[in-house]
Nucleic acid binder design. Sequence first.
DNA 1: ACTCGTTATTAGGCATACCATATTAACGCG
DNA 2: CGCGTTAATATGGTATGCCTAATAACGAGT
Lengths: 237, 237
Amino acid sequence: MTEASAGKSRSIAPIPSLSRQRLADQIADVLREQMLTGTLQPGDPIHERDASEALGVSRTPLREAILILEAEGLVETSPARSPIVANPSLEELSDLLLVQANLEALAGELACAKATDEDIAEIRDLFQRMVDTNDDPDTVGFFKTDMAFHEAIVRATGNQPLIKTHQQYNSRLWRARYMSSRTRMGRIETMRDHGDIIRHLENRDAPATAEILRRHLLQAIANITRILRTERPDTAS
Amino acid sequence: MTEASAGKSRSIAPIPSLSRQRLADQIADVLREQMLTGTLQPGDPIHERDASEALGVSRTPLREAILILEAEGLVETSPARSPIVANPSLEELSDLLLVQANLEALAGELACAKATDEDIAEIRDLFQRMVDTNDDPDTVGFFKTDMAFHEAIVRATGNQPLIKTHQQYNSRLWRARYMSSRTRMGRIETMRDHGDIIRHLENRDAPATAEILRRHLLQAIANITRILRTERPDTAS
DNA sequence: ACTCGTTATTAGGCATACCATATTAACGCG
DNA sequence: CGCGTTAATATGGTATGCCTAATAACGAGT
């Protein structure tokens, strides 16, 4: 027993709210992680009974987790079918990136006005880490730093709805952008653009920061289009 | 038989899509409507047992509906508390509107390139309806047309993620924007701006359309700020 | 042999029953 | 009289069982 068994004596532990997270949220986290690692791949069905048994939980919270992921656009449900992991078409990815480009442009603009020096220092640290690990073969680690860099910029705006929306778009774009980043040109472009971004940000040059971020994301559309065109020449309805 | 496989010739009416909808979705629709009409007001708790009984459903789909609305930001949940109808602070409304302004600016830009003539005709019809009903005391009807006008522009882009995100932001902003539109100045400004918007849209002038839409929404921030400052001088953390 | 119909199995949707915990009120002690 | 402790109650969280619908396989009839 830790502290929560008998009487609730003066709340010694200030961390109860974290462990008190809903099971559905925890399950959603696990499923998200499995989508990232590839344990769950686009198009894979998620059977209620199988998945709940595999995770050691009952069907109810599993169903609720599916609801959460559905709202985020990570799974798709059909009336009498098992929910399936979203498998966005090229058109949908393009649409998502177009919106994301503008969200990040807005974020860059706001960040120039609102970011503290500590925020910018953190962003620069993330950039530095990317430079340091540029030759590292760990593509996942490099990419996660890439994502963290962008998220840090958005977080520096302090605009909660923007942060949340941006995060959800990132979740849906994770796989596509990861594939895009694995190309050699992807890394080179990323490094150059990120250098420009942090420079404009430190200069508090809002228009320039917004524009480079928009271009950076729009470039991703071209990259992903090229990759998907070769991998799956059609399937985009 | 015609379409109903089993022998249930009770109702031949083609309402399968409606009855086929998940109960949770229907409940979420009802709750959203109640938030719009004021039956549910910001801060009101939604007790699982009471609400499910009142709607004649069990707690399970009611809980699922809550999850849907929570993902949309319309209700907020705390670990051991009944979920409550979201009561966004002025700061949060401002943040939401700032993002929405940029989403609509993007939509206007895209619509200039992608909207069909029929799309634009529909948007003009909505504008005309606003002009016709300008003297109408039915503030809700007028406001709904206002919202429909903006949504039609976004829909004309054909960008599904953008449409969905815009719709969710509108849901969260509904009440605040409705209050804003009830002021006389609100209507006058709305009419003038909408006239400019449809004009630029018909000229396919993307930069102008984007800019007027952004300004239109940013103006709403000022309006709402003024209203809330008088109604509830604080409560904004 | 092929096609259509019927049945069985499977899986998701909903309801209900159970459990754990937080909050509040009442009682007792200081 | 006030504060602390404890117990009761209410509420959200979780598990499970039943119901309905879709699908696939098998059998019969042409």
